[in-house]
Design a protein around this nucleic acid. Structure first.
Lengths: 134, 134
DNA sequence: TATTTGCCTACTATGTCAATAGGTAAATTG
DNA sequence: CAATTTACCTATTGACATAGTAGGCAAATA
């Protein structure tokens, strides 16, 4: 299940995109999205680390996107904030190789499902989620 | 992310299906699947509660399927053991109605994704996972 | 210089996950 | 009947993740 971190991250990205042009203060995002600013700080830190947005301190500061909305896909946003997009532990990045790998009768299904999920989220763009035509 | 409960449940169902005809003792399943028998008891209890298998005590006892493998879909097995198949909290069965429901710009995507996941698992049958042609 | 903003570390309550432990009840076989 | 095999039941536990909160410092602008 996608946690609040990933879901909020998406909403932050959308919010910044829709109020773009200028720097968007986190306080405004928090108010509009009705999410605690303190909690958003944690999420936004991940987004900055992944170079999806950049911050600018001081009066008139805030966050801005580093690319155009159509150049982000939802998958990378979720992957960054959730840690992984994998639906089962044995398919997560850096997971230990399963000893039952060859005998496992469910693995092919998980692989197929996992591919479907990745395809879905990586083909969905941030711009697809914006209300207006930005 | 699908937990061990759901994944093990699936393997139990497969194991019982492949050694069907007679009652399959949990001890055997545990050995073949290399999962603690004690832990499997918890999982199997769910499966009995959902009427997917039935147990029979005493010597020569064990568990048997209540239907043919082609009549189970993976979705119902996962749903029963995982509690829900929903990918986001707001779409889980019995979730409180979200106050931002109409304003939420991510909801349509979650709904679409959720539908895709449900379709995938409900169209996949237990029989699709069996090694031989049972 | 005062204010606004980002940025940083630490803490915590709650809950879920993945089991383990230690039994009782039921059914079958010798 | 007795011994064995099996299901079935309640309770407990350690580890970890989730979803935040608290209280600051640093940087930039008006």
């Amino acid at each position: 299940m996608i946690s609040t971190k990933g879901r909020y991250a998406l909403r932050v990205m959308i919010d910044i995109a829709e109020h773009g042009g200028v720097s968007v203060p986190l306080k405004d995002v928090a108010e509009r999205q009705q999410i605690s600013k303190k909690y958003l700080e944690i999420i936004v830190k991940d987004l900055v680390r992944g170079d999806l947005i950049k911050g600018c301190s001081g009066k008139g500061g805030g966050y801005t996107l580093t690319r155009k909305p159509s150049e982000y896909d939802v998958g990378e946003i979720l992957q960054l904030t959730e840690g992984t997009l994998a639906s089962v532990a044995c398919l997560a990045e850096g997971a230990a190789e399963c000893p039952r790998k060859n005998a496992c009768e469910t693995l092919p299904m998980w692989v197929e499902f996992d591919r479907m999920v990745h395809d879905y989220f990586h083909s969905k763009k941030l711009s697809d989620l914006l209300g207006d035509g930005k």
